[in-house]
Design a binder for these strands. Structure first.
Lengths: 343, 343
DNA sequence: TTTCAACACTACCACGTTTTCGTAAACCAA
DNA sequence: TTGGTTTACGAAAACGTGGTAGTGTTGAAA
């Protein structure tokens, strides 16, 4: 059990000063070649690596970025992390992850914990509870301390910062339009409760597509689901009544549940019921029938978010506090992936 | 943009020494009540929080643990992270994640990066390439530096450390036995290439179950798949030949592909073909028919791994270097989740 | 002999904490 | 007054770096 070697130990061993060792390793010309090579050889032999913590303290930057997301066991969020990690790694950053579990308190706690020197900047997606409460003081605070924040997917207009989103409204519009193009008239929207920002936007797109096509907007065809488990009952009732011939589901879990329910009732997908889901995940791909989805590339969002954050971090290097806070909101394009659940 | 306040700034502002401030905040009795309260009030007002980096440097512990896994967009691994995060958070640790992308080099790089002071200990699952090469020097090195490592799922006997695994052999045995109990005679095994440790063990369990039931072990029924995309062709050929009436697939991706292929050919699952998969993920649950799986609770593994690691970290607190390295290997129980793909 | 530069290295500070040790002032007893 | 004990605080070291600013020696040019 040999602890990691430090500059001090090398200095002592070679009987030179710490600064000499430091400079030798950074190939400073101040140090004579003989000493320099001796030190380098010694350091290499003992596999010297500068201590990250000490560097962080000294440089006031940790070279790591914090991610705060509602949950990780979720295809979309894991792809985002993947995307962030790729870019972060390329730039020598590591990634610290905290989960809010969709709880406001955990989100605040985790942010405070990380903001205290552990990371250089945040990439985050708001928890449901935070969106519901509309309380963003923890984020404002972090930003006020000069720590850059990039929000993605679940964002809010109440905070000024860089953002990466998809055009939820336009994407929903496109999906619904494609259903209409296929001759569907009674299109249901299966969505979540309203306070989740994206849910609202997708509803807007749905409504607009209907109206633009002269189809009356029927409140009864909007099914708001808080818990997936209760979904099945509601759906089957409506299906029995043959209230709709197509569904636009706001996520793939809803979509697959609907398909299963319909199949049990002897309805055929897509003949009797066409289904499109938001968020392209594995379920859609491997479900039977496979589900047409509006792709939402988490990886691209992660890439972009990381790029924006790192750019801001490196720019800050000019410590003259220029404060040119020209925040941008990046919109990631989506497209429809047609599969078996639509014709 | 007010930077975070430091002890030094508080000291200057209140015209006392840094030590006085530090002690006041820790409620030391050395400091008179008046001063103490004054400092505390001031600190509270400016929302003082000790800087984590400085604390880490001083205490030589970072209160964060590193996770290295092959990939994150994978249900099993995300559940493990989830499990680790829960326990870590409870104990005031944060979680740093690095992805190896199943690459040896990235695994080494990431470990070196984190080992340099950024974290107190590792939780990891080996990359395919590492298992293939059998080169574990980076892990040995980290352990020699006195940094505890807990390995899970993809482990190796070449490294002495705490481990969390499932009894792959027994679990596979159980699955195959249940197929046999249902009257299946020609059971195929769809698995990965051999160097992935778990693949080998599952094959062993499969073989043993067959032999114990007097069923001849037929090499032709073992289908090794390196790439999921080529899977379909191989499978369909064998299905045409009606070479088997049941399949034990080593992961759910293989299983769902097999079911889809069979369905296309007009075969019914489970009547014509029973399917069991390893690893309980979302695909199995939402596939049609849903797939019987051997559950492998990633969350429990993560919980356990985190507990083991943290226990070791806190125990090390007694710096008398006792070195009682009684490493243990924890086995997480599995059980069969019966669904529609078997009768 | 003086002056100057090059050389080869060391001292010191800062980063933000915690902690050990020290000490001045006040109080008390003798 | 002396000696001792509190009380209340401060100085400084330590954790591991890296950069700036010296410092002392040597040799050579003036």
């Amino acid at each position: 059990m040999k602890r990691k070697i430090t500059l001090k130990q090398i200095a002592k061993e070679l009987d030179v000063s710490i600064s000499t060792v430091s400079k030798s390793l950074r190939n400073s010309l101040e140090i004579g070649e003989e000493t320099r090579l001796k030190v380098q050889a010694f350091a290499k032999f003992y596999n010297y690596k500068p201590n990250n913590i000490a560097l962080s303290l000294k440089n006031r930057k940790t070279k790591s970025i914090g991610i705060i997301i509602p949950e990780i066991v979720h295809h979309f969020f894991s792809t985002v992390i993947n995307g962030v990690e790729q870019v972060a790694n390329e730039h020598g950053y590591s990634v610290v992850i905290c989960l809010s579990d969709d709880s406001f308190d955990k989100e605040v706690l985790n942010m405070e914990m990380l903001a205290n020197g552990s990371i250089d900047g945040f990439i985050m997606s708001l928890s449901k509870e935070t969106q519901f409460k509309g309380d963003f003081h923890h984020i404002t605070e972090v930003i006020n301390q000069g720590m850059p924040v990039v929000m993605f997917d679940r964002v809010t207009n109440d905070i000024l910062c860089d953002k990466v989103i998809i055009d939820d409204k336009a994407a929903a519009y496109e999906a619904v339009q494609s259903l209409i193009d296929n001759g569907r008239k009674k299109i249901a929207l299966v969505t979540t409760v309203d306070y989740v920002s994206v849910g609202k936007l997708r509803t807007d797109g749905y409504e607009k597509a209907l109206l633009d096509n002269g189809i009356p907007f029927n409140e009864d065809l909007i099914i708001k689901i808080e818990d997936v488990d209760t979904c099945e009952i509601t759906i089957s009732e409506l299906l029995h009544a043959r209230a709709f011939d197509a569904v636009f589901a706001v996520n793939e879990l809803f979509a697959v549940t609907i398909i299963k329910t319909a199949s049990k009732m002897g309805l055929k997908v897509p003949e009797d019921l066409a289904v499109i889901a938001f968020t392209d995940g594995i379920i859609s791909k491997y479900s039977t029938p496979s589900i047409t989805t509006v792709s939402q590339s988490g990886e691209k969002m992660g890439n972009k978010a990381a790029k924006m954050l790192i750019e801001r971090l490196e720019a800050e290097h000019d410590d003259d506090e220029e404060e040119n806070e020209n925040y941008t909101t990046e919109v990631i394009e989506t497209h429809l992936i047609k599969r078996e659940s639509t014709d």
